[in-house]
Design a protein around this nucleic acid. Sequence first.
DNA 1: CCTCCGAACTAAAACGTTTTCGATACCTTA
DNA 2: TAAGGTATCGAAAACGTTTTAGTTCGGAGG
Lengths: 337, 337
Amino acid sequence: MVTIKDISKKSGFSTSTVSKALNGSSEIGEETSELIKKVANEMGYFPNAAARLLKTKQSNNIGVLFIDEMQSGLAHEYFSAVLNSVKDEAERLGYDMTFISRNIGRKPMSYYNHCKYRNCDGVVIACVDFNDPEVVELIQSEIPTVTIDHIFNDCTAIMSDNLKGASALVQHIYDMGHRKIAFIHGENTSVTQRRLSGFYSTCRKLGISVPNDYIKPARYHDPKSSGLATRELLNLKDPPSCIMYPDDFSFIGGMNEIEKHGLKIPDDISVAGYDGIYLSQVLRPQLCTFKQNTEALGKEAARNLIAAITDRKTFVPKQIWIEGELLAGKSVKKIDF
Amino acid sequence: MVTIKDISKKSGFSTSTVSKALNGSSEIGEETSELIKKVANEMGYFPNAAARLLKTKQSNNIGVLFIDEMQSGLAHEYFSAVLNSVKDEAERLGYDMTFISRNIGRKPMSYYNHCKYRNCDGVVIACVDFNDPEVVELIQSEIPTVTIDHIFNDCTAIMSDNLKGASALVQHIYDMGHRKIAFIHGENTSVTQRRLSGFYSTCRKLGISVPNDYIKPARYHDPKSSGLATRELLNLKDPPSCIMYPDDFSFIGGMNEIEKHGLKIPDDISVAGYDGIYLSQVLRPQLCTFKQNTEALGKEAARNLIAAITDRKTFVPKQIWIEGELLAGKSVKKIDF
DNA sequence: CCTCCGAACTAAAACGTTTTCGATACCTTA
DNA sequence: TAAGGTATCGAAAACGTTTTAGTTCGGAGG
């Protein structure tokens, strides 16, 4: 490994001069600076992150906390897309991304300690149990954090605007003439609450009454549970004319159930998903859904985290709402009511 | 930050003793060892990875090279599942995982240099352009690497056994009575070549003749292209009775096309996918597919990489074939021919 | 001519560990 | 009792970098 010392010897300048020259310090003469850079290049020099970090306390590395009890994890297209975007933007800004776990070197350690151990400059937290005391410890620590899709006190949070999303869906479905709209929702999380809230408020605004049995609990990313809920809805005395699903993927369960009942989408019943994943756009009929802007979510997460790191003193925590986009698709039929 | 020096002061032992005690060296007395550990705990000590690394040259960190020109990236369930498994096993063995990119600190650098800079102990390479000279440079460097689904000279490679997979599918389809089997395959990669080879050899073994126009090129993870290929197949004078797709997801394109032709799966035509992703198991009829063992793939990748790191001198590169599992599903109908 | 200043450079300390090589004291063994 | 062995501990160097606090020297200003 070629070090700064080697360059120092070869070029005749001291290590301090070499270091400064390579870092573009202004107190080094132009010619010597050029010379040193040339020598460094010739020798194939690259700095050692560990040594640099030891002095500067800047690792140029962000951690990501990304645990899912659901086992879906990286396989969940929404989160993997967000994560991918975080990674891309972080890279663009000169940061690497490391996964943070609970054990390292075979010894268990808390998330916070892990971050300290790896000297993460900051960490983005997503898809995680926000009640876990270890997560709370991390968020409340001195390490800059941003959370995704969850607001924790006054920490910086990047939020997909689920209220507007649910709202837009209801509005569109209403515009297509539907008045009997059912909503199968996911587990009780803040995301779900916002969607429900958007659903209810828009219904109220539009003067639609929502029977209690039009609201069914299910689980995200779980076609089986949404299939069951669908069955219950279809068996109602007065079934809905349109069903909204927790997400595009779990709609598949509904799709099967609807088919089993001998019904056709959208002629006999209309449906809508959520997320706007790739799948939703290749299904036929194309699924009506609300596309979350995963790219913007990830990008903003990375940007704000790095801003918080860089302007540590002046940065003020904020909540950023990322809006999505209604993809009308063909799964909601225009009807006269 | 509490350091070894602080513990040294508080406990009255030298830093060397503290270091040894904390690392469980046998040359430290039992009682002092206990005492030191207690003090360390009380003070909330955790080692600093950078400082440790600087001495030991062991980062306990592996890099992953994971670039996709296709934009699918982490969104591709197969790869994200493999990656997830790599991560889990690496964590279990005490390693962290960092993404390797081409630029760091806003300055471009080669993959190899990036790994050096971050002191990665090793790197797993997946879903990447293996013709990229920078990738070649990395593989041929002194840094231990394992590749996934690609054999590069005599480097360690973890391979999903695509030959057996394609073979098993053909065998099953044959057993169900089909003799007219079409294969829509993905881009020309080594994976595709193996599947084709498994397809052809099994057909030959079973005495099935395969017309040239039963073999259609398409792209992985791209329902549009496989939809087109499906249309061509259905319009043939003598269409196949069963179509094999590049992967489960791209089958969706075929599904739409088949429906558009007014055909029913599996009564009018049989189909099979590849991968065994979650989607394939929730579709109705359940898709006949070959499930790749993503968990084993990731686990073996992590294990072998770490073995190569640990037993640097004695480890001999090898190729490991991971077998999958046929999921018969319901999309291939039993017919009399 | 003296003083002062700034530009260009350097010596040395520091970051937090690990590790090598002793040092000390105690215990065996002949 | 003397020599040797062993168990336990410590001093100091080292890893590769950045940074602080100079040092030198030439020239400007009075």
